[in-house]
Design a protein around this nucleic acid. Structure first.
Length: 818
RNA sequence: GCCGGAGUGGCGGAAUGGUAGACGCAAGGGACUUAAAAUCCCUCCCCGAUUCUUCGGGGUGCCGGUUCGAGUCCGGCCUCCGGCACCA
């Protein structure tokens, strides 16, 4: 173990200093703002290494910007509603609120202890009435704008626990708690009409210049835009059967139709009496399946023939209508034309039930192997007047004809579904709607918000409906319109609603009159840098963008995208490479190591172990190296504190200085330059190694050095974002005025990096043969001449002639000889 | 299956198309010490020579290509990790 620097004294000392001097409070009207935000967390217990990684990243970014003279907002909050609190209540007998607030206390203390520079005056806690009042307000905004609606929807239902389950609580079709097969139930649910924003959410992805490609791709796929054609088939008895297809070029290959079992049109089809019971049985069977079961691609498809037939509008062909649950009622029109020759799913189905398979697309050259799903270098066959057209042309021509004859129209479909936001749970934000037998659904007037969550409920154990439904003093109320008796909506909101607008609240966290003052939000947002894990790519980040657009449309904010830059840090895995999770019990708290080594050492170890965007295995092996590094730094500071003290802006004359000073000064400026580049790329690991290299350059320091003290001061500044307490202390030891955060950011002296001589790598035919030191000014021809005269290189030139040479100034020369 | 990301020493990792392995960990050797810890110095991808500090060859998952020059660019694979997965 190395001799520690006294981190136990200096860490609390500087935390106190920062606090007393209010260094981390974001001003109301910044001149040069920088808002950096880590994704807030669900307070499930204590902070682990994954959180530690996230917050040290934003902390370093925030501190770096402070040193560069920005006014920084670095806020934090708690995503405090949610299921685990109810589970804790059931298991431990503690009220969800008490459990949650206790956890927040613990986590906040931990975060303070690791010196994260949050502006705690802006803290938001989503489960407190001063916050959820405005979540309710957001709901009403959606409602007023026609973006919130209530309708019947399918949910997962565990018959043993008598509860609905979230999709993620259904594991392999079974309840996560009791392994009972999950059923599907129809319940009336609240939805947000995010699909109304599908096109904008998709198109504006192109504006997200500072977002990772991976997230943008995931969002594009999630929204899943497809352009195609709606075509109206007709049943024999004249019932229109409209299908959506992205392949109008294959219409002539439609050999049957498939309708989703829950499709209402089935009532109108001429199903022969003999088929009715079979159809009913299949519908019944499908209904019992969960969406998860139904959409599993591995399952073998099945279905039944309805006995009815339809007519193909293009060729008048009579084709059978089948019913199968591989067709989703919720996408397109809930029925399809099946083209087994050119669709894998239809092919599988046709094979199973011996339905005809007719190829209508063929490659320009070569043979067809069915199913043939390509469109490139392919043409139509067996398609009447359209035969021989290339696919793309046939696509358009058929679409044109269908539109011209009024049998359909071009259409864009999205995979994105509306957002189901209601939950039959206690620990969430109430839905501010009153159900009146006379007036129907009536929104709670804004001045009556918040609808408070009652503290006392009969039981937290879910009975299949919200526990709030069983609290008479909550559920029974009067209608705001007619004053007659009415009932409150018993459901609570999905917690993703709470997290869809919390960043806006940071700009105006104490506002009692509104969720925020638009001016304040427009001052601080869009967020300059939003940092978190990739797991929120298609959930939270999409909802957050959706809310922003709605708030813009409603005139509350003047921007259409909430975050200029998004950074995804890599996951922290345990030493065996497994994801750290509570259920595996392999989470590691940073606290133990912090007590042994200090939190700056742990921060450095974290940063140094891997680039921030890559996943990392957490082991304590690297900790020792960082401990040694800071200890050496510390000892050097003690040694140099009384050496020549240069001013903070200082240039060394490269001609008159000692060789030692020149070399150190050069390395210093190299490090300053490198650190600037690497900080900008989130490459904290190489920032640290650059400072290590600089430290290694000090060696035995001559007493008369005019640079050593200066270089160490600058090195301290470079380290300040990643090792904040340590840097403050060294800064003071070296005789500078605190805080180092106010000391400015070092700029490199280009002159120091400019040399008159260069070290040149010499390649002969692309292979490294030698390195030479030559004056920078030497022209290529002379270098070449010089090389040919070197005895060491003589064997390479012997009996050969120089064909050409490639000279990369100051780096390398490649001589091609033959 | 589709979409991302990644494969470099014993390990974590570094390298604007230009000297592969920076920086650190581990390991081995040495100095200091009564001893240990701490600290400092040296060695540390593989093979072969060697006057002992140099030289030659090979080497960044595999196979090709482009280039004076490829870890880096292009094409085709393999493996691992994430995400999505019957969306017509």
């Amino acid at each position: 173990m190395p001799a520690h620097y006294p981190f136990k004294e200096i860490e609390p000392k500087w935390q106190k200093y920062w606090d007393e001097h209010k260094l981390f409070l974001a001003p109301e009207s910044p001149q040069k703002k920088y808002m950096v935000v880590p994704m807030f967390i669900y307070p499930s217990g204590d902070i682990h290494m994954g959180h530690f990684r996230n917050y040290t990243i934003t902390d370093a970014l925030a501190r770096k910007k402070m040193m560069e003279g920005y006014e920084v907002m670095h806020p934090f909050g708690w995503d405090a509603f949610g299921l685990p609190a109810e589970n804790a209540a059931i298991k431990l007998g503690i009220h969800p609120e008490a459990w949650t607030l206790k956890n927040i206390e613990i986590s906040r203390e931990t975060l303070k202890r690791i010196g994260i520079c949050f502006d705690w005056t802006r803290e938001v806690t989503t489960c407190l009435p001063d916050y959820y009042k405005w979540t309710e307000w957001m709901f009403l905004l959606m409602y007023k704008r026609g973006l919130a609606y209530r309708t019947m929807g399918k949910v997962n239902w565990c018959p043993k626990d008598k509860t609905v389950l979230a999709n993620e609580q259904v594991v392999g079709g079974l309840c996560w708690r009791c392994d009972t097969p999950v059923e599907t139930r129809e319940l009336e649910q609240w939805y947000f009409k995010i699909t109304a924003y599908a096109e904008r959410l998709l198109a504006d992805i192109d504006k997200l210049k500072g977002w990772p490609e991976s997230v943008k791709t995931m969002q594009r796929n999630w929204i899943g835009k497809s352009t195609g054609l709606e075509i109206r088939f007709e049943s024999e008895n004249g019932v229109p059967l409209t299908v959506f297809t992205t392949r109008p070029d294959t219409v002539f290959g439609a050999t049957f139709m498939v309708v989703a079992p829950e499709h209402p049109v089935l009532e109108k089809l001429p199903v022969p009496a003999g088929k009715k019971s079979e159809v009913k049985a299949y519908q019944e069977k499908s209904r019992r399946k969960t969406d998860i079961e139904r959409t599993s691609a591995e399952r073998e498809k099945d279905g039944v023939f309805t006995g009815a037939f339809a007519l193909n509008p293009l060729n008048g062909e009579k084709i059978p209508i089948w019913m199968a649950d591989y067709v989703l009622a919720t996408y397109g029109t809930g029925m399809i034309m099946a083209v087994p020759a050119h669709d894998e799913r239809d092919f599988e189905f046709a094979k199973k039930y011996n339905l005809p398979i007719r190829p209508v697309i063929a490659p320009m050259e070569g043979n067809v192997e069915l199913p043939y799903t390509y469109t490139e270098k392919a043409k139509l066959i067996n398609s009447g007047a359209f035969s021989d057209l290339p696919c793309e042309v046939g696509w358009q021509k058929i679409a044109d004809k269908v539109e011209a004859e009024g049998k359909g129209r071009r259409k864009t479909e999205y995979r994105l579904r509306d957002w189901l936001i209601s939950r039959q749970r206690y620990w969430g934000c109430p839905i501010p709607i009153i159900h009146c037998p006379k007036d129907g659904m009536v929104p709670v007037p804004e001045e009556e918000l918040p609808v408070l969550l009652p503290k006392k409920v009969k039981s937290f154990i879910p009975e299949g409906r919200s526990p709030l439904a069983d609290v008479p003093e909550f559920i029974n109320t009067t209608c705001p319109k007619c004053n007659g008796p009415a009932k409150r909506d018993p459901d609570t909101m999905d917690t993703f609603l709470c997290s869809s607008w919390y960043l806006f609240r940071y700009a105006d966290p104490k506002n009692e009159k509104a969720p925020f003052e638009p001016k304040k939000v427009n001052t601080w947002l869009p967020v300059d840098n939003y940092v978190g894990g990739i797991e929120h790519a298609t959930g939270h980040l999409l909802y957050f963008r959706f809310f922003t657009k709605v708030l813009q449309d409603a005139g509350y904010v003047n921007f259409d995208e909430p975050a200029r830059n998004l950074f995804n840090h890599g996951m922290v895995l345990d030493a065996q490479g497994r994801v750290m999770s509570k259920s595996l019990g392999n989470t590691v708290s940073p606290i133990e190591e912090i007590e042994k080594e200090g939190c700056d050492v742990l921060r450095l170890a974290m940063f140094f172990a891997a680039p921030s965007d890559k996943e990392m295995l957490w082991t304590t092996e690297g900790v020792l190296g960082q401990s040694r590094f800071l200890s050496r730094f510390w000892r050097l500071a003690q040694e140099l504190k009384d050496y020549f003290k240069a001013p903070l802006h200082y240039k060394v004359d490269m001609h008159t200085s000692t060789e030692y000073d020149r070399a150190l000064y050069k390395k210093l400026n190299w490090a300053i330059k490198k650190a600037a580049e690497d900080y900008a790329d989130y490459q904290f690991n190489t920032v640290i190694s650059a400072v290590m290299e600089l430290l290694n350059t000090f060696g035995e320091v001559p007493k008369d050095s005019k640079v050593a003290h200066y270089a160490l001061s600058k090195a301290t500044q470079l380290l300040a974002p990643v090792a904040p307490h340590f840097s403050e202390e060294i800064w003071q030891i070296l005789g500078h005025k605190p805080s180092i955060l106010a000391s400015g950011w070092p700029k490199h002296d280009q002159q120091a990096l400019e040399e008159t001589i260069m070290t040149l790598a010499v390649q002969i035919n692309g292979r490294l043969r030698h390195t030479v030191t030559l004056p920078k000014t030497m022209p290529e021809v002379e270098i070449l001449k010089h090389l040919q005269e070197l005895p060491k290189l003589a064997p390479h030139f012997e009996g050969k002639s120089v064909v050409k040479s490639i000279y990369v100034p100051e780096k390398l020369i490649n001589v091609v000889v033959r």
